[in-house]
Simulated assay, not measured.
Amino acid sequence: MATAIVGILVLVALFFAVKGVLKHFRGESSCCGGGAVTAPPPKKLSGTVIGKKVVDIEGMTCGNCKIRVEQALNTIDGAAAEVNLHRGHAVLKMTREVSDDEIRQALAGSGYTITGIHAKG
């Protein structure tokens, strides 16, 4: 009798696990809490790009994460971000000198961790 109860519990848990995985792959949920995020058009900079910084970021796992990080970094005046999800970094093009503190502040509280910031040559 106990074996039957354990078997039923395992089957119920397996059912919910498979249901969640299928929902995720259909795009009805995401790893970062909610449905699909619509990507805005890329930010256009007015002025000459004077430099680039590479921001190494941990915690990005999907396209929604990429969009959220780009949106957060694009709030920095005079900077536009392009995230490479597979490399785990963002390239920040700048029309003015942007401090590392400004970059960290833009992602503060987002759930993503900056592991390094360096100039791109």
Results as ranks from 00 to 15, higher is better:
G35K: 05
T3H: 02
V6D: 07
V6S: 05
K19W: 07
L45N: 03
S29T: 06
E28T: 02
G7R: 10
A17Q: 10
S46T: 12
V18I: 12
A36L: 15
G7Q: 12
K44M: 13
K43C: 03
C32L: 09
V6T: 09
K19R: 13
F25W: 15
A4T: 08
A39Q: 15
G33W: 12
P42Q: 07
T3Y: 02
V18M: 11
K43H: 08
V10P: 00
V37Y: 00
E28N: 12
G47C: 07
G33E: 08
V21M: 11
C31N: 03
K23P: 01
V37T: 12
L9N: 08
G47A: 06
G35A: 09
V10N: 10
F25L: 13
A4P: 00
V49K: 07
G7T: 04
S29H: 01
L22W: 14
L14G: 12
L9H: 01
P41K: 13
V49W: 06
G20N: 15
R26H: 15
I8P: 00
L11G: 09
P42S: 06
A4W: 02
G33T: 01
A39D: 09
A13Y: 02
C32Q: 02
V10S: 09
A2D: 10
P41S: 07
G34Q: 11
V12G: 03
I8A: 11
A17F: 10
E28S: 03
C31T: 01
V6K: 10
S30P: 01
K19V: 04
S30K: 03
V18Y: 15
F16N: 01
K44Q: 15
S46Q: 15
L45V: 08
P41A: 14
I5D: 06
G20W: 03
G47Q: 07
F25H: 14
G47T: 06
T38H: 14
V10F: 08
V37W: 01
L22G: 11
V18K: 06
F16I: 04
L11S: 11
A4Y: 03
T3K: 06
G35I: 06
P41C: 05
T3R: 05
K19P: 01
F15N: 01
A13G: 11
T3P: 00
L11H: 04
G34H: 09
I8Q: 08
T48Y: 04
L11W: 13
K23A: 14
A17I: 12
G7K: 13
K43S: 04
S30D: 04
K23Q: 11
A17G: 10
G33M: 09
A13E: 01
F25S: 06
L9G: 07
G7M: 10
A2Y: 02
G47D: 07
K23W: 04
V10Y: 05
T3I: 03
G33H: 10
I5N: 05
G7Y: 04
G7V: 01
